[in-house]
Simulated scan of single mutants.
Amino acid sequence: MSEVYGRESGTIARARMCMAAFLDGVRARTGVAIPRHVTDAAQLVVSELVTNAAKHTSGPYGLDLEFAGHGVEITVWDSSPEPPVAMSPDPQRIGRHGLEIVSALTEAVSSTTTDRGKSVTVLLRLPVADPA
């Protein structure tokens, strides 16, 4: 599943809804129940990545979701070639915890420079429950 966003408002909410719809589709295709807390974590990861793309680029950005059998590959691409930089943990800092949150919730985070900017890809494991 893929979506492309511009400078319009509501893109973060749209990305979160896209993630939820994607996981609903995974449930429907596989028959595996995905716990609510996993859906919530996936939506938070997408929200943080899309927020970063919206804040740090002037061009379009997008979201690509792929079911990898054991998890979901979430890729957010944008027009900036600058890789994301994780800040050192600091409970006193207000804001700029996005990549820290993403790293805590996912198994792997990688950034790749592309001909149009960069892409940030994360693997979110799906600790699934048996079908109800």
Rank of each mutant, 00 (worst) to 15 (best):
R14N: 11
H70P: 00
G6E: 11
S111P: 00
S2K: 14
V120N: 12
G59R: 08
T114C: 09
D78N: 15
P131V: 01
V120P: 07
K55A: 11
D64W: 02
P84F: 15
L123Q: 09
P131R: 02
V85P: 00
I101L: 13
S47A: 15
R29I: 04
H97Y: 08
V102E: 09
G31W: 03
A129H: 09
T121K: 06
L65H: 09
I34F: 08
A104W: 02
V26I: 15
V72K: 08
S110R: 15
P83E: 05
T114W: 12
H56V: 01
V85G: 01
V102R: 04
T113C: 10
F22D: 07
V72Q: 03
P84I: 10
V50H: 09
V76T: 09
S103L: 12
G62A: 05
D24Y: 12
L44F: 00
E82H: 05
V32R: 15
P60I: 05
D90T: 10
P131A: 05
A86H: 01
V128Q: 05
V32I: 14
M1H: 09
L126N: 06
G25S: 07
S9M: 04
E8V: 00
L105G: 05
S9E: 15
Y5H: 04
A15I: 02
G95R: 06
F67A: 04
S110C: 08
E73K: 13
S80Y: 09
D90E: 13
D115N: 04
L105I: 07
T39W: 06
E82K: 10
L63M: 04
G95T: 12
P60W: 02
A129C: 08
I34S: 06
G31Q: 03
A33Q: 11
K55F: 05
G69D: 07
V102L: 12
V85C: 00
